[in-house]
Design a protein around this nucleic acid. Structure first.
Lengths: 341, 341
DNA sequence: CTGTTAGCGCCTTCAA
DNA sequence: TTGAAGGCGCTAACAG
């Protein structure tokens, strides 16, 4: 019943356990003949390597952890899949957990991963995570890399899209198109990605002498309904701006919906743009201008950083930002200053 | 450097390893005082339970595996997240892998999971998986549950949406609305879900004396572009049917797009319906009639089945189908026989 | 080239 | 109530 062990095979072949172990490692200290005989026996007896034992012995786990807030949006799904590909290229399994932005759940996941003695962890931290929440990892000496979201005051490895640059790109595009008033809509300011995107937008506009006031930034849940709510609030606060930049494509969907409800045509009466460049963006009505953040590149990069740190824990923290790419579509190119005046 | 072990704590407290182990299990065979003293020491010394060792000793891994083809679509993401929730409720970690419908990758994932001696595996099998591909799991005595996709000729635990019933529901709805010719569009016939949905549609139509011919079923890749291609082919093969049923909401999007390209208005000139009831379905133009397949319920059920089998491997295979729910929206309710004649 | 030994950290059993 | 011992399956180190 119990699986075949190295010992069993050794007995069967009349050699020692160590010899069999050497065969598994294809050591060249053994005679061809012995190797062959042992290999045959391994196969015949249906031997399966027990990684648990090897891991215990070698003080590792051949696994890394991946903690995401969620995987229901396409961007994070791409990230998860690319992490798995990179990890398995180095023969590491991936243990996954979803925090749903709950600090308690995240803590439980971290504890579990530490007990399993994972070789490393990639973490997209829940809203409100502080460096104290990661101390357990440090005490346990487990290398980790942050993705997507930064933690204030914490210097550590990080991989993510260059959100600031992405914001700047939209600023440049919209300012050049003639927009003179711009609002940023959706997302929570607790999440670093929002602050970076909004910051980049503000900086880009400033460089082009377009004003951007704090009251032109409205927070919301980061989904379609959030886009609707934020748009309502925006229109109550004042007149329609030339352009609305949404926190994400999903939020932008809600924005467009609410505008239409009020008889305002997105892409014509007001320019719309956002972040993610999701697969549907080109197929929206109007097709949505969006900055691609290449989340699978981010996942790949995060995994690379993690393995580097696992190799050498003394490295300086490394911050890796993936370059975004602007895709201009009718939601912003269809708007012209003339049309609104 | 190395982590604190039970042994270390025992020495510090002047008791035996076993005593400390008993404290961890909160055994009532120990004096209150000893427990207290040992607990203090555990805390002070920063002891962390080493699950690897415990797992080796107990011949388990406290982890289950989840192999999906992909997680880029919302339905599978929901499934993945619900599996993780259920598993962690029983203190099991989740090791994840994505096969991308590649048999080779799936095989590698299975091998890894077997080497890690996972306690069980939930598998959404890649296209073309046969029972032979799962023999490794059986030899290793690892319980597994199939989700979402069945494998021909393999009796084993399975959890999935009741696709046949879902097809019937659409048949009933469309036939009652007056549709007399119906096409099924998109998806690969290698995937059991398509065959079940299409089969249910056919059966439901037959029960209402509406003909459904094989040539009214067109396969394609299961995405938006597949919907476009399949629709082109459909219109080349013959006249526009009263209704088009798409394999999934994503495919339906392509269908609607291609129809509009040809000046045919979906929801008016032809009824459209599909499966998944994705979050965007109500927000499409026209709002899309779709059958909800509750993938998070499927994930929950699959995990439940797996744990049951882990408890008692001798159980009869159990097949669990989650009831679907029809959501009628304008894409089908806006169409009337009159309008097309 | 091959075999022996001694653990990795935990937990169960048996003896005191 | 506590202690000692042995072993899960693997492998590094050392001895033959």
């Amino acid at each position: 019943m119990g699986a075949v062990t190295l010992q069993d095979v050794a007995v069967r072949c009349g050699v020692s356990r160590a010899t069999v172990s050497l065969v598994l490692q294809d050591s060249n200290r053994l005679s061809i003949e012995t190797k062959y005989r042992v290999r045959e026996a391994l196969r015949e007896m249906g031997y399966v390597y027990d990684r648990r034992a090897a891991n215990l012995r070698a003080q590792r786990s051949s696994s890394i952890g991946l903690i995401l807030t969620d995987v229901a949006n396409r961007a994070l799904a791409d990230l998860a899949m690319s992490v798995e590909v990179e990890a398995s290229a180095t023969d590491h399994a991936v243990m996954i957990g979803y925090s749903r932005d709950l600090l308690g759940k995240q803590e439980k996941l971290l504890r579990t991963m530490i007990e399993h003695r994972l070789d490393g962890v990639i973490l997209s931290a829940a809203d409100g995570t502080s460096r104290r929440d990661l101390e357990a990892l440090e005490r346990a000496n487990i290398p980790y890399v942050l993705v997507t979201r930064r933690i204030a005051g914490l210097e550590c490895d990080y991989a993510g899209p260059d959100n600031f640059r992405a914001g700047e790109m939209l600023a440049a595009h919209l300012a050049d198109a003639g927009a003179r008033s711009i609002a940023f809509v959706g997302g929570s300011s607790l999440v670093s990605a929002r602050e970076e995107r909004c910051g980049g937008l503000e900086a880009g506009l400033a460089a082009r002498r377009v004003a951007f006031a704090k009251r032109q930034s409205i927070e919301s849940i980061a989904d379609r309904s959030g886009g609707i709510d934020a748009t309502s609030e925006l229109l109550e606060r004042g007149p329609l701006p030339d352009a609305i930049v949404a926190y994400s494509d999903t939020v932008a969907d809600g924005v467009c919906f609410e505008l239409l409800q009020r008889g305002i045509v997105p892409g014509h009466d007001v320019a719309i743009a956002s972040f993610d460049n999701s697969p549907e963006a080109p197929h929206r009505e109007p097709p949505l201008t969006s900055v691609d953040t290449f989340m699978s590149a981010v996942g790949q990069e995060a995994t690379r950083l993690l393995f580097e740190r696992m190799r050498d824990p003394s490295l300086e923290p490394h911050i890796s930002l993936c370059s975004p790419e602007l895709h201009v579509r009718r939601s912003s190119s269809g708007w012209h200053p003339i049309a609104t005046r």
